[in-house]
Design a protein around this nucleic acid. Structure first.
Lengths: 345, 345
DNA sequence: ACGCTGGATGTTCACGTGAACATCGTCTAT
DNA sequence: ATAGACGATGTTCACGTGAACATCCAGCGT
């Protein structure tokens, strides 16, 4: 890794400082600072003069100096793994938007793997003094112990397994998965197969648990689960086996992309959906309703998750003393479309 | 918008400073600074002692102070509109990754609209001193004049219409679109209909131009274009009209999501794909190959675009003197799958 | 007329760092 | 043995800002 700060060519892009503005407008630097920070006690005439000078010079406050002085960067760090996925990017989108409304800028870090080590390294990168708070979008560590954070930095996590350690926000995975299974059972299916997410993923575990619980509550057989890695490709691969198995008549997929892959495999095998096989997804990505057939799925409101994350985090930043570990669960309703139907007789 | 910096409760999270480390390890602050910056001339024994002290204190350099001193934040600003879209998030993902490798952190700003005003406001937010350079992921302004940037901040744009103004990187939209049309023509179609993107979008315009040019080169009739807004929903809506028109036998969609919506409408209308209608998309999103039928499409390599953007930007940051306005075009190959076939007789 | 009050404005200072320059000690060439 | 050189380390200073405190002035009550 290069050390950009040590590059001589990159130095000094001075730009006007508060002092330049002060000189031009004939006031002290402090008064300029007051104008910049919208302090109440500045004479309107003075304020105008200063604003004019700022405009003329193209002044904008030096964020580094300000951060050094105040100890706050007005910045939120966001740690994410695989930003390109629908859920992740939607969540981050909402975070950025909500943060902006609160006056914060967002610093984004992508971790190569969701392991504890990588996340910790990322946190160190954003560590102390460079960020007022941290949002961890999905920390799929297998050991959700409390994250050892530098200097009591406020944190929120989009992963409900951190309950009790850090405030968190997440969709109601358990209930959502159960609802999907119940829907298929209500249609008359004897049991429901699972196309699971990667075993080390927290949300994948939760969805599998919800699936199993619903089946057991109904006194049904719990078939062994097929394994995917969230990608459509893996759904297609697993789907080819599922499609070849005549016992498979209803499948709950741990996300919509794998469901799309499964639909692909099913079509290819000539099994009709929902005639021969019913399929339910999870997430309700924008494309879900335009798959063929339109996919019945469990909706995750990523935008709301993002908003809540920022709300919780800002609360914590504003008043670290009143810190309470809270857990917000946003509902995950079932959206019934056309990929589910009663079993063929 | 709140003013986070003025919040008294958020103040002072001191953490150890370079001075504390110096005291503990019995050297001067400057030597600690040298160790932190991996300067060559520090005795190994001294270095060890300092590193131990850093470890013990949990020291990490104050980025604000460093930025103030050096004039560089080691940060790249990224301006994006609609991060949740596939192309955008993939590009940003690659940017973040490439930036990290170069030792830069990424500051993300989402603009509410791609208009000039909003982009300019975002730029001001990231302005001077808070960012070493800027990546504008898609500036869909209708007037791609040179962006008036604060203090000669290096910029790169993922939009080829800025050629001559700012360095840019973009997929070869024109050639890609033309290739898609030629493919359909080669299959024997008389003409190709267009399901266009929003008229104010640069890439949408480019794709439409490529489509028209290919048709004209082949001496074919240029049908009027259907209009979408990039969303699958809009593709579905437009698709219902297209599906009802028996003259429509081949459609080039300006992106894959609209193509998915079109497929949906076509299935619903009972028109077979590719039997009755051939469909080509643009982007090659991960789901494209798992739509039904698997979608023939033009691939945009977003990851490469992201990488190139960072490369160009870092080049510029490192040596602003050698600034050259360059334009990188990454190829956009046609990926033939199963949604295209010769016309029914 | 005079002192007092309170708001507007100015002055001083420290935040943590790294560049420039100063110093110190050791090793080498004569 | 001594000057000179060079590498390791220390000292000083300024980067731009905002908090704390100081000052100044107008308007008020007596």
């Amino acid at each position: 890794m290069a050390a950009p700060t040590s590059n001589p060519a990159a130095r000094r892009r001075p730009g006007p400082s508060i002092g330049d503005v002060a000189r031009l407008s004939g006031v002290s630097a402090q008064t300029v600072s007051r104008v910049a920070n919208e302090a109440p006690n500045v004479l309107p005439a003075t304020r105008q003069r200063v604003l004019a000078a700022m405009e003329q010079l193209g002044y904008s406050p030096n964020r580094a100096a300000r951060a050094l002085r105040t100890g706050s960067f007005a910045t939120i760090g966001v740690v994410v793994h695989r930003l390109a996925r629908t859920g992740e990017s939607s969540t981050v989108d909402a975070i950025v938007e909500a943060a902006r409304r609160e006056g914060y800028t967002v610093n984004l870090v992508d971790v190569a793997s969701p392991s504890s080590d990588d996340v910790m390294a990322a946190l160190r990168q954003l560590s102390n003094q460079s960020v007022d708070g941290l949002v961890i979008v999905r920390a799929e560590t297998t050991t959700p112990t409390s994250l050892a954070l530098p200097g009591r930095t406020p944190v929120v996590v989009a992963d409900s397994r951190f309950v009790g350690h850090h405030p968190s926000v997440g969709a109601d995975q358990l209930a959502g998965a159960a609802r999907a299974v119940e829907h298929l059972l209500e249609l008359g299916h004897d049991t429901v197969h699972l196309l699971a997410g990667p075993p080390e993923s927290g949300p994948a575990q939760l969805r599998a648990t919800g699936w199993r619980a619903a089946l057991e509550r109904a006194g049904r057989e719990v078939p062994s689960a097929a394994q995917g890695d969230w990608s459509a490709r893996s759904g297609y691969d697993a789907g080819r086996h599922l499609a070849a198995d005549p016992a498979v008549a209803a499948v709950f997929c741990a996300n919509d992309e794998m469901a799309a892959g499964l639909l692909h495999a099913l079509h290819e095998a000539g099994r009709s959906v929902p005639g021969d096989v019913s399929v339910v997804g999870f997430d309700d990505i924008p494309l879900a309703r335009h798959l063929w057939p339109p996919l019945t799925t469990v909706r995750q409101d990523f935008a709301q998750v993002g908003q809540e994350l920022v709300r919780l985090l800002v609360e914590q930043i504003r008043d670290p003393a009143a810190f309470v570990t809270r857990n917000v669960v946003v509902p995950a309703p079932l959206i019934v479309r056309s990929s589910t139907a009663p079993p063929a007789r």
